[in-house]
Structure formats: structure tokens, C-alpha cells
Design a protein around this nucleic acid. Structure first.
Lengths: 341, 341
DNA sequence: GCTCAGGAATGAATCGTTTCAACCTGTAGC
DNA sequence: GCTACAGGTTGAAACGATTCATTCCTGAGC
């Protein structure tokens, strides 16, 4: 019942434990017949390496710890997937922790990862974790921040340029002839919201005659969007914007629902009002009117973060890097449909 | 730079390694002053247990492996959360693997878990994994199936009664006076779809005068739902159902969008047609018309599965258990709104 | 026939923790 | 003053894979 060990394999194959280990780790060092006997014994016994013993000897595990703010957000699951795939090519695995925007949970995961002597930590931080991460680094565990550009340069980071995303969105709306644009989003404490708005502002001021109104909402949710949308529908037609830039897709969908509802004010999308969201979640293309959006290279972020992490694990003295990706415009009917203005 | 070991702590505190270990694991066995010195040394050195060494000695890790079909499905993340919380009360952690309905990925995770000598495995199986799981059990690693009642009784399982869920939905519609009901769902190879339909059928035949039509769709997605919804809106009014039971919330939302679209056939929900979905995802309550649904106790499933797993890990000879939870009806406007029929 | 090179195989030491038999030391009982 | 006993403490063995200095073999070269 106890799993067979490398010793059992050695006994069965009639070789020493060292040879079995060589078959597993340095196959070229072993003669053909010996290797065959060992492999046969492994198969026969159903031997599986004991990872704990390997780790103990190696002093480090073959696992990367990843802590995300919210597993239910497609952005993070895609990011995780990218990290996983990249790790797999190096024979590593990723263990995923969901902090759920809770300092306690975040901290618990960091403890766990430290006990496990993980190879490195990827984290989209919520609380102030710099000290914790610094301690990990002293212990030889590197960390890379994801979805957050590192303020100082103490740690490497991989993020997306939200300012550029906001600019993209508004430039696109302007290019399609829109002039009165509303930014719907909030709360502004969230860095991403602030940056997206800043980008929108930048783009707007570059075009004379273009105005940017701000509609502050309490959360990045469908409901918040619907309420904002209803308020806009209730305005006199001449007071309505001709385009809406929502801080994320959930808000955009809520707005869309409100505008399109029968019994509404007879507003058409994109005819009367164009709408663009942010994140390009799956639901975006499935909306009543397929939603234009700003796509972030989520998987690529994860992938790149793992690459940097491995580099730092290999060469602790390697310089920190701040990678910032550019987001991409995804045009669908909600801004460029058949009856667009 | 190498992390301090229990030996360093012992040296600093002027005690033996055995005593340090006792402080950590059996605090009552250690005298006050000794314990204090040890704790001080731990703090001073920033000592953190090496999990690999513990595991090696214990022969088993303190981790539970969980493999789900799709991390992006809120049902599974809630389940994972339940499992995690329950595990935490026993001082264990959960590592989450996403098979993404891919046999290869599923198998890779099982390999990983076996190498890690996890305490046990929770799995919502995709491929045929019975042999793999049986081998694990021979090695002393128990497994519990989640979201799938085990056919034989070889393994314990925790699932939800989908037949009962289907029955609930239709009984509810009938109780609100609906007579011509359409079940929209597919593909029928998915057990859940089949069971939900079977339950709907059972309820329908119990009521004379109630008919149940089936609209087969190729996927459980918003788009599939919208297409089906458009087809229904295109029918002559007298040929339309007066209620729709969708196999999941995504389909229900697609149908809802199609029926409510301006330029549609002037159909009101729930006035002309009531709609009920399944799963009670967050979006359900955020739909244009808040969606009635069938709620599954996702977190409770995860929690219970962990309980059973721990029992089997403790007592391998304990009898297998098949736990089946009952789903719950959640009534919102889409079936019982102000203008319901 | 002897030496030597080099490939192949060996097995003891090691990683850090837990466990447990053995070993104090002081106290209570007689 | 001696034994019993219990609460504290000790330190060596064990877990299983990896590593590396050492040994063993084989065949080539002279």
C-alpha cells in the first residue's frame, strides 16, 4: 500500500539507487540494457517520484505561486492560463490562489507559498505586500507584480497601459464622428478606472469640439451600468451624449440594456449612441448589440510574467523590468454597426 | 541567504531540535521559559517551516487537489471556495486545477497530484478516470467525485439532483398558470441537460393540459440562446410557448435578449412569456428582467466533498457515500413580475 | 602482458523535519 | 535515604530522491 520508492525500483531492476536516479534525470549517462531494466521496473511497480523528497534535496520546489484578485474575472483566468502554459514548457506548475480582494486571504497564500519554498511568486497585489515580498526575495524567492506597474523599481512588473486604452477608445469614437462623449465608470480609487479616464481625457482635448462628460458610478457592475443608462435615457434627446465609453464591459452591458429596453426612449445603438466597453470579456460579443471593447493581452501578461520570474530565479541579480503592454481595439457593431451615425 | 532551519533556531535558543519541533507541534509538552526562548528565536530568524521536509517525513502532504471542468464557470469557483474554506478549518489547503474539459490537462493534473502525494483528490471528471483514481486509492490517496453522481459505488460523490431541479422549474411555471412550456437546451450528451429535461418532463405529464416542447440548441451559451429566442419570436403569436425553461442561465439570458429586443415581436416578459434559467449565476439577477433560476448549493458541495474526503483519508475502509443535494427555486421577475400572466 | 582512459555503476552523505526511546532532574512517598 | 514517577529534554533514526567521489570494467595501445 505504501507507494514504491526508488529503492524498490533499484532492487527489482538489480541496480543501485544512483542508477535509477540517473535514468530519471540524466538518461544519457546510463547504458541501454540497464536503462531498459529500470524503466521496466518503474512501469511494473507503478513508481511515481515523491515530489517532497526532490524538493527537500533541491531546496526549492518546481511550482510557481500565483495570487489573483478575483478568479471569477475572465481577465485573471486568462492570465492564469497564460502563466500555466508558459510554466509547463519549463516543466513547472502553477498553483493558483484567489485573494478575493481580502488582505487576510492574500497573506495566508503568501505564508503557504513561503512554506512550500515555491520557485517564485506572481501577484496582483491588493494590500501592501512590498515588505512581505522583500523578505521572500531575501530568502531567494523572487516575485513579479502583474496587472500593476511597480511604483518604485524594487520589483519587476507586467501590466497594461490603461491610459493608452482610454485614448484608443475615445479616438475610435471621434474617428466615427462622435462629439459628445460620456465616460461612465467608478469608483475612481481603482487605478485602472482613473487611468482609463485620464486616457480618454487626453484624447478628447486633442480634438476641438469634442466634449467628455463623466458619469461616476459606485461599482464596475452590470447593475451600476444599467442605472447610469436609465438616467441617460431619461434625459432630453439633445442633452444625451452621442457616444459612451464604459470603464469596463459589465458597465457597458448594463448601459446597453437600459438604452435598448422597449419602453425606453426610442434610442438606437449605435445609431443614436455608440457604446464601447473595456476588457473584451466573452459576454461582450454575445450582447444584444455586439459590443466594441478594448482587449488586454491577458494570457500574454501571464506568460511574460513567468518568463521574467524564471529569469530572476535563475539570476537573482538580474535587473528589474517593467513591462507594459499596449491594449488593442476590438470593433464590433455597438460603435460601427450598419446604422452607425 | 539560505532560509534558517530548525537547527539554527535550536542553536539560538539553546535547546535541542526536538524541543523546537515540540514547540511547533505539541506546545503543551514544553516548559514556559524554553518555549519563550524558542519563539523568540523563531521570530528573530524569521524561521518558516520547510513544507517539503514535513511532507517527506509524514509521507503525505497537507494539500487537497481539486480538478474542475471550467474555472470560469461561477458554479465551480463557488464550489472551490466552499472546499477551500472547509479545508482551512482542518489546516489544509486546496490546489486548484482547471481541466478545461480536456483529457490531457486532466491527466496532467492527476500526475502532478500523485507526485505531490496529496491528501486526496476532488474531481469533476471529464474523461474516464476511474482506473487512475483506483490506482491512487491503492496508493492511499482517496478521491471524491463532485457534480457527478458515481455510477457504481466505487467512489463517493457529491452532486445535485438535476432531475429535481427540472421538476421544480416546471412546477413553478405551471403554478403560475403556464401551459405551453418550451425546454431550451443542449447538447443532450451532457448529463445535466438530460436530467434537467427529464425532470421537466416528469412534472409536465403530471398536469393534464400542460405541454412540453423541446428546442435543441448546440451549446449552453448566450448566443445559442439568442438564436433560439429569435426563432420563437418569429413564430405566430398563437404558436409561441407561454413559458420557457432554459437549461442554464446563459441560454436564458440569450432568449431574454432576443424576446425583448426592440423591433422584436412586441413580446413582454413575463407578461407573454415567462422565463426561468438554471444555476443562478450573478448575471441572472442583473439581467434586463431579473431572471428566475434554480440555485445549486455550490459552496456546500465543495464543503461536503472535503468532509467526506478527509473521512476517507482518515479511515480508508469507511463506506462510500453518495450525497445528492436538492436544488432550490429562486423566484424573480422573469416568472413572477408585476405584469405576470 | 601491462597500463591507461574513460564510460558505467555504486552507495554513502545530504536536505529539514518529526518521532520516539532514552535520559535527566526534582519531588513525593515511605 | 531510597524508590517511583512524571514532566522536560535530548539526539539519533527515518522519510526518499539526488549527488558526487569512488570503484569497477572493458577495451585500446604499446
Amino acid at each position: 500500500m505504501a507507494p514504491p520508492s526508488i529503492r524498490d525500483v533499484a532492487a527489482m531492476a538489480g541496480v543501485s539507487v544512483g542508477t535509477v536516479s540517473n535514468v530519471l534525470n540524466r538518461p544519457t549517462k546510463v547504458s541501454g540494457p540497464a536503462a531498459e531494466r529500470v524503466l521496466a521496473a518503474i512501469k511494473e511497480l507503478g513508481f511515481v517520484r515523491n515530489d517532497a523528497a526532490r524538493q527537500l534535496r533541491a531546496g526549492r520546489s518546481k511550482t510557481i505561486g500565483l495570487i489573483v484578485l478575483d478568479v471569477r474575472n475572465p481577465f485573471f483566468t486568462d492570465l492564469a492560463r497564460g502563466a500555466e502554459d508558459q510554466a509547463a514548457t519549463a516543466g513547472l506548475s502553477v498553483i493558483l490562489g484567489n485573494s478575493d480582494e481580502d488582505r487576510g486571504r492574500e497573506s495566508t497564500y503568501l505564508d503557504l507559498f513561503e512554506e512550500q519554498r515555491v520557485l517564485g511568486v506572481l501577484i496582483s497585489p491588493f494590500g501592501n505586500v512590498t515588505e512581505r515580498l522583500e523578505r521572500l526575495r531575501e530568502r531567494g524567492i523572487p516575485a513579479v507584480l502583474v496587472d500593476r506597474s511597480a511604483d518604485g523599481s524594487a520589483f519587476s512588473s507586467v501590466s497594461v497601459d490603461d491610459v493608452a486604452g482610454g485614448r484608443l477608445a475615445v479616438e475610435h469614437l471621434v474617428a466615427h464622428g462622435r462629439r459628445r462623449i460620456a465616460f461612465i465608470g467608478g469608483p475612481f480609487e481603482i487605478r485602472q478606472v482613473e487611468d482609463r479616464h485620464a486616457g480618454a481625457q487626453l484624447a478628447a482635448v486633442r480634438h476641438p469640439g469634442v466634449s467628455l462628460e463623466v458619469v461616476d458610478v459606485p461599482a464596475l457592475s452590470v447593475i451600476a451600468g444599467r442605472i447610469a443608462g436609465e438616467a441617460i435615457a431619461a434625459r432630453r434627446p439633445e442633452d444625451r451624449p452621442d457616444a459612451i465609453f464604459a470603464a469596463n464591459d459589465l458597465i457597458a452591458m448594463g448601459v446597453l440594456q437600459a438604452l435598448m429596453m422597449r419602453g425606453g426612449a426610442g434610442i438606437t445603438v449605435p445609431g443614436d449612441i455608440a457604446i464601447i466597453g473595456y476588457d473584451d470579456i466573452d459576454f461582450a460579443s454575445a450582447a444584444v448589440v455586439p459590443l466594441s471593447s478594448i482587449r488586454q493581452p491577458s494570457a500574454l501578461i501571464g506568460q511574460t510574467a513567468v518568463e521574467i520570474l524564471l529569469e530572476e530565479a535563475e539570476t537573482p541579480s538580474s535587473p528589474r523590468r517593467q513591462v507594459v503592454f499596449q491594449p488593442e481595439l476590438v470593433v464590433r457593431e455597438s460603435t460601427a454597426g450598419p446604422d452607425a451615425g
